[in-house]
Simulated scan of single mutants.
Amino acid sequence: MAGSIIPGILGMNPFSSNIQSQQGTLSNSSTPINIGSNIIPFAGKRTIASVTKDWELPNPTNTPAITINGKTLAEAFAALNRLPQWGQGGGTLKTDPIPLGDTTDLDVKLYANLVLRLPTWTGYQAASKAAQNEWDNMLAKLRIHEQRHVDIAIEEANALASELIGKDINKIPSLVTNANATMLKRQRALDKDTDHGAKPGVPYGDVILDASIT
């Protein structure tokens, strides 16, 4: 039995993206909004000379944990399908506010807010070897899928960091907003192309769990 994988992407907020139910699946319904810096008014032109990144090395948040209960693989499978999503990966770009002043050649702190979350099955140790292997195979494929969501977030974060250099600070809100919109479009495209990870034989797919294994 193939599991129905939910997107697991982060639109605007790592833990509270707007999600609505549609025909038994969930989709992120957030529309891109301006989540860039709150810039305090200033006099004169102030440009960005450097960007401090919070994702080097990548620092995805792995909590809160996704805990799956159940003694059998079938029970674990049912528990997975009661969740809004099997796993979660991605990020949200945001900068610190720029304070009032006349300093030029500013450093901007850019955050990717990376998140990578995978399920843990509490019945794993007591399960049969065959059931453990099936869970391990599913989890490995799910990790690849969710890591790709994280990688997309990092790619867009790096692109934004480069684009910010030399720009006036007035450009920060629109550039951050556009970068998040591009990221969200790419995240949704990944899930569409892979059927949210469940499509067989495609990169970042094959996330299935055979619940009949005992």
Rank of each mutant, 00 (worst) to 15 (best):
M1A: 13
G3N: 14
I5E: 00
I6M: 11
P7Q: 10
P7G: 02
G8Y: 03
I9V: 07
L10N: 15
G11S: 11
M12C: 13
M12F: 10
P14V: 06
F15V: 09
F15T: 08
S16M: 07
N18D: 11
S21E: 15
S21C: 05
Q22L: 09
Q22E: 10
Q23K: 12
Q23T: 07
L26Q: 09
N28S: 09
S30G: 11
S30Q: 09
S30D: 15
T31C: 05
P32A: 07
P32W: 03
I35R: 15
G36K: 01
S37D: 10
N38R: 13
N38A: 07
F42M: 07
A43K: 13
I48P: 02
I48Q: 08
S50F: 07
V51D: 10
T52M: 11
K53T: 07
L57V: 15
L57H: 13
N59R: 08
T63Y: 07
P64L: 04
T67W: 00
L73A: 01
A74V: 09
E75M: 03
A78P: 09
A78W: 13
A79M: 08
L80R: 00
L83C: 04
P84V: 06
G87E: 08
Q88A: 06
G89L: 04
G89Q: 12
G89W: 03
K94N: 14
T95Y: 01
T95W: 00
T95H: 00
D96I: 14
D102Q: 15
D102K: 14
D102P: 05
T103Y: 04
T104E: 15
T104A: 10
T104F: 11
D105M: 02
D107L: 13
V108C: 02
V108N: 03
K109D: 08
Y111I: 09
Y111N: 06
Y111P: 01
A112T: 04
L114I: 04
V115A: 09
V115H: 10
R117H: 04
P119Q: 13
W121M: 03
Y124R: 09
A126W: 09
A127T: 11
A127K: 13
A127D: 05
A127H: 02
S128C: 03
Q132G: 09
Q132L: 01
E134L: 01
E134P: 15
D136I: 12
L139H: 14
L139T: 15
A140L: 06
I144T: 12
E146L: 04
Q147S: 14
H149P: 04
V150K: 04
D151H: 12
E155S: 10
E156P: 09
A157V: 06
A161K: 06
E163I: 01
E163S: 12
I165Y: 03
K167D: 06
K167M: 02
T177N: 12
T177L: 03
A179K: 06
N180R: 07
T182D: 03
T182I: 12
L184F: 07
R186V: 11
Q187V: 04
Q187L: 11
D191G: 08
D191I: 08
D191N: 10
K192V: 10
D195S: 09
A198R: 14
A198G: 09
K199W: 00
K199S: 05
V202R: 04
Y204A: 06
D206Q: 04
D206Y: 01
D206C: 02
V207A: 06
V207H: 07
I208K: 15
I208W: 11
I208V: 13
L209F: 01
L209M: 08
L209P: 10
A211P: 02
A211Q: 14
I213A: 05
T214S: 05
